[in-house]
Amino acid sequence: MGYELTGKGLNEAMEEWAKDYAIYGPRRFENGGRFSDTDCIRYGEVTSVDEIVFDQKSEFSFKEVLLPVSEVLFYYTEDSVKEAEGPKKGALIFLRSCDLHGVKRLDEMYLHNGPADSFYRKIRERVKFVLMGCERECTNGFCVDLGTNICTDYDLSVDLAGDGYQVDCKNEAFDDLLQQLCLRQKEVVPAYVTETSVRVKIPEGIDQRISGSSMWREYDSRCIGCGRCNFVCPTCTCFSMQDIKYTDNEKAGERRRVWSSCMVEGYTEVAGGGSHRKKNGDRMRFKVLHKFLTFKKRAGYHMCVGCGRCDDICPEYISFSDCVNRLEAGMKEVAANDSQ
């Protein structure tokens, strides 16, 4: 069911929803940017639709709502272990089509890739999604080529329409309130991008031989291994575990799951001091092939959703889409080497 609402009407709806859900959306944090006196657009709790930024891409994804940067899993004492409680409220998240496709990737990793992760599931089962329509392409995005520019799997959609909003509702639990607050009912189709300036071409028949291409060596010196690309990515899922001992009793403490990155030095270190990927180019290779080769073999679709945030955030101006477009030449290189 579709509805047309004023800003006041939508804010009244959000006020009612806030009784059951913590509402998150891309909002502006003044002076919170990477440089002096610059703002940052990232996800945070909102109380009004006026706080939500509709006309710019958020620098960080929605991911930290489902996967907190630092998440306590359980508390322990000398003789007991207690699992941490989940959030007391559910969550209502405003996000764009590419990010909503990212939810599918996170679900694959945490719910279907072996035994389900109970901590992720505890949060995920109480989350509803509000699709934000995209009227124009974003910088560095290539969602169209990956088929993530359109999404129909949402609870609500919200599009700006002049001074008001157009809302499509697919969850009957929200219908009664929207009917009371709307100006009129009408058919609503969320806006979506149909073409992007940045294009990617993923070669057919790419296989593990691409690991032997010389293209990866360029990133040994270009990449500095900061991991920013992983942290802003809506589909990266690497983490490490930390045991925190309490100062007043070292036999009590907590275990936390903390974001980590396959791109940083030390992530692949094993007992005895060995490391599976010592060079930055090897880490870049692992990340790219995980997004476009190994994950697809298992799940049937690419892990990357084409949001372009990795290009936006890289301090060395490394283009992920450019790297993907070089895979075809890399495959030809290794095929030629095999034939010699």
Rank of each mutant, 00 (worst) to 15 (best):
Y3F: 01
T6Y: 00
G7E: 15
K8M: 07
G9Q: 04
G9E: 04
G9N: 03
L10S: 01
L10C: 01
E16A: 14
W17A: 15
A22P: 02
G25D: 13
F29V: 10
G32E: 03
G33Y: 03
T38H: 02
I41E: 04
R42A: 11
R42N: 07
G44R: 00
V46D: 11
S48M: 09
V49I: 14
D50F: 12
D50Y: 14
I52K: 04
Q56F: 15
S58W: 05
E59P: 11
E59V: 10
F60W: 11
F62D: 04
E64N: 15
V65L: 11
V65S: 09
V69Q: 14
V69S: 14
E78D: 13
S80A: 15
K82I: 10
K82W: 00
K89M: 07
L92F: 09
R96H: 07
S97T: 13
C98G: 09
D99P: 12
V103C: 03
Y110H: 06
Y110G: 01
P115A: 03
Y120D: 04
E125P: 02
E125I: 01
R126V: 00
F129T: 11
L131M: 08
C134N: 13
E135M: 08
T139M: 15
V144H: 07
I150Y: 13
Y154R: 10
L156I: 13
G162F: 12
G162N: 13
G162P: 12
D163I: 06
D175Y: 03
L178N: 01
Q180I: 02
L181Y: 06
L181K: 03
C182V: 02
L183K: 02
R184P: 01
A191P: 06
T194P: 08
E195H: 14
V198Y: 03
I206H: 05
I206N: 00
R209A: 09
I210F: 08
G212H: 14
S214C: 12
S214G: 15
M215K: 06
R217K: 15
C223P: 08
C223G: 12
G227Y: 11
C233W: 12
F239S: 11
S240I: 15
D243I: 11
D243N: 12
I244D: 09
K245F: 05
Y246K: 14
D248T: 06
E250M: 11
A252Q: 12
E254A: 14
R255S: 02
S261I: 03
V264E: 04
Y267K: 08
G272V: 06
G273E: 10
K291V: 00
K296N: 01
R298D: 00
A299R: 04
G300L: 04
M303F: 06
C304G: 08
R309P: 05
R309H: 09
D312A: 15
I318A: 09
I318W: 07
I318H: 06
I318L: 13
F320E: 07
F320A: 08
V324L: 05
E328T: 07
M331A: 05
E333Q: 02
D338E: 15
D338T: 12
